[in-house]
């Protein structure tokens, strides 16, 4: 039974988790992606293998970790290792089915910027940089991005491409030499679910959040955004899903604010 008692953030998390399947190897950091992955693990993907960039393999995460070095994200792992183990030996090796990332800007080809606003050599704003994000975007078979929907976050072209989407067109990744040449890329925002259309290499509307119109999404996006012919509505969560999220996945409300 679906319910009306949920926040948009909770729906974003539940929707993101729907892109994670049982038995997937999933590379995640902290924040909302972690909440979405833990929700998937507890809801429909009990055999999912969680891999942390710091080298933890299949941890049984407790509480709400604030860092990939937090002991909470390393709890009862089958192995602790190094960055090279996780990002080289699992990810570049081609074993990551799903990876989550975030960023300050996402453009029409789903390229992501987490480095600078303005010119690289004299930036207006400097962000932390790639971290493992470039590696995740380069090598994972499916890339999930959860972000708030604001016009400045969705420019025509990123000021700086930190992590590759489809680069500049449908064959952009293959031409660039990226091993994961045609990955599924899904962007989940508080307004819409977008995915790269493999025919064009560009993002398009797949599903709208309940009550949101195509016009509303386009007004908040800095590039022309087509809609899939069969663009529908994101399915609301069930009562059981909301309960699981609030009571077991993020009971302290560290990442998900309780509804007002």
């Amino acid at each position: 039974m679906t319910t009306d008692d949920y926040t948009l953030e909770e729906l974003m998390v539940v929707e993101a988790s729907r892109h994670v399947s049982d038995w997937d190897t999933v590379m995640v950091g902290t924040g909302l992606p972690m909440v979405a992955s833990l929700f998937a693990l507890k809801n429909h993907a009990p055999n999912m293998c969680y891999v942390v960039e710091t080298g933890g393999i299949a941890p049984q995460i407790v509480g709400t970790p604030s860092s990939v070095t937090d002991a909470r994200v390393m709890h009862r792992a089958v192995r602790h290792g190094s960055l090279l183990d996780a990002l080289g030996g699992v990810l570049q090796r081609g074993l990551a089915d799903v990876a989550f990332l975030g960023g300050a800007q996402i453009d029409r080809f789903a390229n992501v910027n987490s480095t600078v606003i303005g010119d690289y050599d004299s930036p207006k704003v400097r962000f932390p940089g790639s971290g493992g994000a470039n590696d995740l975007a380069s090598h994972a078979k499916k890339i999930l991005i959860i972000t708030r929907h604001e016009k400045r976050r969705f420019p025509e072209r990123c000021d700086f491409i930190t992590s590759p989407g489809y680069v500049d067109g449908p064959d952009g990744r293959r031409k660039a030499g990226l091993p994961s040449a045609y990955p599924e890329i899904v962007v989940i925002t508080d307004l819409v679910v977008m995915a790269v259309d493999r025919a064009t290499g560009c993002l398009r509307i797949e599903r709208l959040m309940p009550g949101v119109t195509v016009e509303q999404v386009r007004n908040s996006t800095g590039f022309d955004l087509p809609a899939a012919a069969a663009a529908g509505t994101v399915e609301p969560p069930t009562e059981a899903e909301v309960r699981l999220l609030r009571e077991e996945v993020d009971p302290g409300g560290e990442y998900l604010k309780a509804p007002e």
Binding site: Q92, N111, T115, Y120, D121, S130, N134, D135, S138, H139, F160, I161, T162, S163, P164, V167, G172, R173, A176, G177, L178, P179
Partner: peptide, 17 residues
């Protein structure tokens, strides 16, 4: 050798710079 950084400005802008 690496297969990361391809297709990005980490590679291209820094090389151009």
């Amino acid at each position: 050798p690496s297969k990361s950084l391809l297709g990005t400005d980490i590679l291209h802008k820094q090389m151009e710079g």
